[in-house]
Design a protein around this nucleic acid. Structure first.
Lengths: 131, 131
DNA sequence: GTAAAACCTGACGCGCGTGTGAGGGACAAG
DNA sequence: CTTGTCCCTCACACGCGCGTCAGGTTTTAC
């Protein structure tokens, strides 16, 4: 498939796909005219890349990790890298949970507070059912 | 206290503190000579700001949230904002967990795999004790 | 009074994932 | 062969949190 189809199938912009190739994350065959052609498994690849980006990994780090995910490289160094990134994600989750708890405390207080009892239409809309 | 002291006490750079003020997140009194002076509670304020940045909030969003945290504003809109951000954090945590599970699967496979049994000195160093 | 340290404003730079536009080829349909 | 759509390669721009340098003022310590 060509780049436009991959873009619509994955929901990722054409620009982004070209950027992934530039970063060495997503290989593409080229037609005689220079156009990119992808295999079907590129779709999963793009999802994986997006997942790792969403987890806060940089292109460079993803580039280092992908060979491990593909099980093409399995060295002590690659395993250390995998563990390091997993641990970084763990720390980030911890931070997010702390922030979430902080916000939750504020929410709890504000909803039990005085002006918190003035239920409005806008709130009724944004909160489907407090059943 | 002046900005340098606040910086060392919080571990945040002077540049960052000035940036927080520029974004309206951290107020400071001024001396006759124009230098910033902070109260002790600025320390906690900075920690809070850092926490929210770490949770992926933008300066703008933090600016909107701070009045709620200070319990100075408590409207239906502010509560909706709080919940929206909390939910965003929840979604982000979910994404991170997915990425973590993906990496974990790779790690599990690679450590049980063939070349995973070639223990080297570098691994012995990076892994203190597999006791 | 004088030097050093801390502070001030203003402005440019960076990293990074993308948006966006210019100017031009590739390719299927009529 | 032409038209329309998709694609190509530069290349500039952005947002954002902050580093960093320049040139100057304030405060502190002696």
């Amino acid at each position: 498939m060509r780049i436009g189809e991959l873009a619509t199938k994955t929901g990722v912009s054409v620009r982004a796909l070209r950027y992934y190739e530039e970063q060495g994350l997503l290989a593409a065959a080229r037609s005689s005219g220079g156009q990119r052609h992808y295999l079907d498994d590129a779709i999963d690849r793009v999802y994986l890349i997006q997942m790792l980006y969403a987890a806060g990994l940089s292109s460079r780090t993803i580039l280092d990790l992908l060979p491990c995910v593909d099980a093409k490289v399995n060295t002590p160094q690659s395993r250390a890298l995998l563990r390091a990134e997993r641990d970084r994600i763990d720390r980030q989750i911890t931070q997010l949970r702390q922030a979430r708890e902080r916000l939750d405390a504020v929410i709890e207080f504000s909803e039990s507070s005085a002006s918190g009892c003035t239920r409005t239409d806008s709130e009724a809309l944004s909160t489907p059912a407090t059943v």
